[in-house]
Simulated assay, not measured.
Amino acid sequence: MSDSNWYVIDNVAQLDSPALVVYPDRVRENVTLLTQAIYDVNRLRPHVKTNKSREATRLMLEAGIQKFKCATIAEAEMLAMAGATDVLLAYQPVGAKQQRFVELIQKYPDTLFSCLVDNLATALQLSDLASVAEISIPVYVDLNVGMNRTGIAPDEHAKTLYAQLTQLSGIRPVGLHAYDGHIRNPDLAQRTAECDAAFAPVQQLAEALSADGFAPPLIVAGGSPTFPIHTKRHIDGLPPVECSPGTFIYWDKGYGATLAEQPFLPAALVVTRVISLPDDTKLCLDLGHKSIAAECELGLRVSFLNAPELKAIGQSEEHLVVEAGAGHTYQIGDVLYGIPNHICPTVALYERAFTIEDGLVTGEWATVARDRIIAV
């Protein structure tokens, strides 16, 4: 099979659609590319919100990656089930999530769990629960470096909060978390300048904390767009900055189009079929809102590797209508291979991904952390 039709499934007739399919050989290649992009694998803390599966996690573990980041208690538990030894819940636990987090720590003592906090009141609540459970939870102060959704500014208020956290029982501050997902300029030089400007106060805060006698704080920074920038950071007197890309493992059309400097391969697709011909120029596919992330504008949600000319013009829960043009030759039952614009929320729509090896459906990877609750 040539590189141009790497995605073709020879026994696709046995695969119901719509379906999420993953290509393990390409996943392995992406993991290798990730580890080669940084001088120390211990600086990697990949986010698993993209794959949500034990199998993908184990491929990273086999490559020597031991630290991970996640967004939900279920993702954290999935990581522990897979054998991860260091898991950061990149989310501030509030309400019932605090008790679940404590129970998670108790259930998986071989995994070091940590989480984010951005205010003293929440930290006090978590401290009380941890103290009763007789555990100590490492916490990172969540910094707002421009996303404007969670975290506090990396200034004197953050420094004060960090100092206050050291006085609490049940938790202990160990570092700073700075997610700069708003920085995604296609021009790498401009993206680098924006990233460095957003990171500068984080570095200043870390250096100030160290100068005040605190243990030099760990810094977890960035996502996929700023990954190649943070990999180059070295700050004298501070631990190496940890990097947290996530989409790399499956990649998608969105980042493939805007992050040209990153060589990751598309490794997960959606398989769909033509189910109706509404008129002479249109096709209807079984790829509705429930089967592809619908956050982007209609025309950008999915592109078809074997039918790049098709343009989406309408979508509902179970259907996607595309314009094929006059004189097209598509027939009912034709199979199309779609690359999502955003793979992460697309994966979350499927309870399993079918594995494709040597052109054949060979098995499946359960999207186990798609559920909000696994056991805890």
Rank of each mutant, 00 (worst) to 15 (best):
D3H: 11
S4L: 14
N5K: 08
I9L: 11
N11A: 08
S17E: 11
P18W: 03
P18M: 04
V21E: 08
R26N: 09
R26T: 07
E29G: 04
D40V: 01
V41G: 00
N42P: 07
R43S: 01
L44A: 01
K49F: 02
K52F: 03
K52N: 05
R58W: 08
Q66A: 05
Q66T: 07
K67M: 08
F68L: 06
K69S: 15
A76Y: 01
M78K: 09
A80K: 03
M81S: 12
G83D: 04
A84C: 15
Y91F: 15
V94E: 14
R100T: 11
L104V: 11
Q106N: 15
Q106R: 14
Y108M: 05
L112F: 07
S114A: 14
A123C: 00
S136K: 07
P138L: 07
D142G: 05
G146Y: 09
T150G: 10
T150H: 13
A153V: 04
L161D: 08
Y162S: 12
Q164P: 13
Q164H: 12
L165Q: 10
Q167R: 12
G170L: 08
G170R: 09
G175T: 00
L176W: 06
L176A: 14
P186N: 04
L188F: 14
A189D: 13
C195M: 12
C195S: 15
F199C: 02
E207D: 13
S210G: 05
D212R: 07
S224P: 08
P228T: 07
R233Y: 10
R233H: 08
V241N: 00
F248M: 05
L259F: 05
Q262F: 00
L265Y: 06
A267L: 10
A268S: 12
A268C: 12
T272G: 12
V274M: 04
I275D: 10
S276N: 15
S276H: 12
P278G: 10
P278A: 09
T281W: 08
T281P: 03
K282I: 01
L287A: 07
L287P: 03
G288F: 08
K290T: 09
A294R: 07
C296K: 15
E297D: 11
L298C: 14
L298N: 13
V302D: 05
G314F: 15
S316H: 05
V321G: 00
G325K: 02
G325T: 03
Y330K: 09
D334I: 07
V335L: 03
P340K: 03
N341Q: 14
A348G: 14
Y350M: 06
E351M: 06
F354G: 04
T355G: 08
T355N: 12
I356M: 08
V361N: 00
T362N: 13
V368H: 02
I373K: 10
I374H: 06
I374W: 03
V376N: 07
